[in-house]
Simulated scan of single mutants.
Amino acid sequence: MTAASLSDLDAFMAVARARGFRGAAVARGVSPSALSTAVRRLEARMGVRLLNRTTRSVTPTEAGERLMERLAPVLAEVEGALDAVNAFRDSPTGTLRLSVPSAVARFILPSIATAFLARHPGIVLEVSADDAFIDVVAGGFDAGIRYDERLERDMIAVPIGPRVQRFVTAAAPAYLARNGRPEHPDDVLRHAAVRHRFASGHMPVWEFEKDGAVVKVRPEGPIIASSIDLEVAAAEAGLGLIYSFEGLLTPSIAAGRLVRVLEDWEQDFPGPRLYFPSRRLMPAPLRAFVDFVKAESS
């Protein structure tokens, strides 16, 4: 058996991680047929099928899974070694892939990203907005941003953006005129609510805190959505109270389309963290981003 080329191995990893040729091709900037040819060539050289292909999906075989496990750290080290040359540039080049929650993509990352890219014009930033907790290594990302989740032991985490944030509750002036203002979190149960559902299906409780007392409620209401745009529009139309990140509701509150309620019960929580694998050779675009974030926060 002849030795497999590094490019064919890399193509296999891209397709296996993306669970499809089209998605991997878009991420790599090549054609699906080029990746398909590379994977077929690799399978022919190894004498074993690595991917199960159907019209709807592509999944690794048992042999493919085993190869992925062994290849991931090796390819990461190869990429890191090649990328080390970037350290000698005045400004590094390459692609930085981030997985972030939708709220971060909406009101925290834009100002950080634009300032970072202005300083490093040779870097391409790819951002995937996903509220699920992502294994950044398995997903092919360089780093992720999340709120106060448990991180694996081999992850490094640094604060990014505001150190403290809060959830706020608000409603349209017309809704409050019809139904009155809630004065205590328990009053929320007597109001209609615009509720949020994550892609996982989880619907968070509304949590309030004052003088050490914590109150959690699960209100009912006429609309449940996974889109903050739809939720804000519904609240502005007077369909009920809305409970969300302060940054997402601030524009509507500032414009008078929503009115803040239960302000003395608002709960603070730690801001997001940038997390990434601990490795000896960090990709130059990621190193530049980490250094930028640390400098901005100092």
Rank of each mutant, 00 (worst) to 15 (best):
residue 256 G to L: 04
residue 98 L to I: 02
residue 15 V to A: 10
residue 141 F to L: 05
residue 159 P to R: 00
residue 62 E to G: 10
residue 177 A to H: 14
residue 161 G to I: 00
residue 106 R to E: 08
residue 211 D to Y: 03
residue 290 V to Q: 05
residue 256 G to A: 03
residue 154 D to G: 14
residue 111 S to F: 05
residue 166 R to I: 07
residue 77 E to Q: 14
residue 152 E to Q: 13
residue 283 P to R: 03
residue 29 G to H: 14
residue 272 P to G: 05
residue 227 S to H: 13
residue 178 R to L: 13
residue 197 R to C: 06
residue 62 E to D: 12
residue 187 D to C: 13
residue 120 H to K: 06
residue 50 L to A: 04
residue 290 V to D: 07
residue 246 E to F: 01
residue 159 P to Y: 07
residue 100 V to S: 04
residue 217 V to H: 01
residue 123 I to A: 02
residue 5 S to G: 04
residue 216 K to N: 15
residue 185 P to S: 12
residue 78 V to R: 11
residue 271 G to P: 03
residue 111 S to E: 07
residue 22 R to K: 15
residue 27 A to L: 14
residue 160 I to E: 01
residue 275 Y to P: 07
residue 79 E to V: 08
residue 50 L to N: 02
residue 237 A to Y: 08
residue 151 L to V: 00
residue 153 R to Y: 10
residue 89 R to I: 02
residue 201 G to T: 04
residue 221 G to K: 07
residue 135 D to Y: 07
residue 54 T to F: 12
residue 132 A to G: 06
residue 122 G to C: 11
residue 213 A to K: 11
residue 255 A to W: 05
residue 231 E to W: 05
residue 287 R to W: 06
residue 45 R to K: 15
residue 62 E to V: 11
residue 265 W to K: 01
residue 231 E to T: 06
residue 153 R to C: 07
residue 58 V to L: 10
residue 37 T to E: 15
residue 87 A to K: 13
residue 254 A to H: 13
residue 81 A to M: 15
residue 251 P to N: 10
residue 206 W to G: 02
residue 82 L to P: 11
residue 275 Y to I: 09
residue 296 E to D: 13
residue 4 A to G: 13
residue 234 A to E: 00
residue 52 N to S: 09
residue 84 A to K: 00
residue 164 V to Y: 03
residue 105 A to D: 08
residue 25 A to G: 05
residue 61 T to P: 11
residue 115 A to N: 12
residue 84 A to P: 05
residue 212 G to Q: 02
residue 166 R to D: 01
residue 116 F to S: 00
residue 90 D to T: 13
residue 115 A to Q: 12
residue 164 V to M: 01
residue 259 V to L: 03
residue 1 M to D: 12
residue 28 R to C: 09
residue 33 S to K: 08
residue 63 A to E: 04
residue 281 L to C: 08
residue 241 L to R: 03
residue 153 R to I: 15
residue 84 A to H: 07
residue 31 S to E: 15
residue 195 R to P: 01
residue 189 L to Y: 12
residue 287 R to D: 02
residue 185 P to A: 07
residue 4 A to R: 09
residue 50 L to F: 09
residue 61 T to Q: 10
residue 233 A to K: 14
residue 113 A to N: 10
residue 204 P to L: 04
residue 227 S to N: 14
residue 255 A to I: 09
residue 56 R to S: 15
